[in-house]
Amino acid sequence: MSLVPYVLALADDALVSAQRTAWWISRAPELEEDLALANIGLDQLGQARSLLSYAGAVEGAGRTEDDLAYLRDDRDFRNVWLVERPQTDFGVTMARLLVFSSWQCELYAALASCGDPTVSAIAAKAVKEVAYHRDHARLWTLRLGDGTEESHQRMQAALDAEWPYVEELFEPVDGALVDPASLRTAVLDRVQSVVQDATLAVPTTAPVVGGGRRGLHTEHLGHLLADMQHLHRSHPGVTW
């Protein structure tokens, strides 16, 4: 089984998440948060670049990180739905980051000792970054959940809105180096304990029927890619 679909799936999660996170730069609730979210976005983008380059190398067809990021259509992207929907509410952004970084933390920790030396090296570096993201999201979940009445309600609504997209993280992926299902308990335990500490309720909303790992996406991804890819595609073959 080729490693390519799996590495691409992880790369696309990080890339699409970086693209959404970067939206916050110049729009955050305070200047310190502009810096923090830029940092988080940069980490995610860095992970995406390493993984895309490696996927291209393993594939052996000469595709670079930019070919893979800019010249694939939405049906070829393999990211989960969790990361691709718009996030223009700070509570949603933190709820999503809490889930995503908790998952990435467990995933990269497991991949750090996987059999593929390149993936293992990328994961060993990334796990330190996402541990910081997870802590950042944890602290904001506490502040928003246990802050004001308004923030409590908004954070609960944000968690409820993100919850249907959590299960997709644990679905099987072709060529997986770590069985996604094996991460489920650790990720959910971690997230639930933060949610409870924040005086919030663990949502009971049912999972949606996703399909990101098979290239079936929400309507939002096409718009994200149109924005991200249009300049690159308008000038084929040039150097930037």
Binding site: I25, S26, D34, G41, L45, A48, M228, H230, H235
Partner: peptide, 28 residues
């Protein structure tokens, strides 16, 4: 920031994000 989402390569995107982040830092 208007060009972060559309930066024409991932390397340029990373540099631009870091640059705009520096500006926030200067503001601080």
């Amino acid at each position: 920031g208007n060009w972060i989402s559309r930066a024409p390569s991932l390397r340029r995107k990373a540099i631009l994000m870091a640059k705009v982040q520096d500006e926030a830092g200067h503001g601080l």
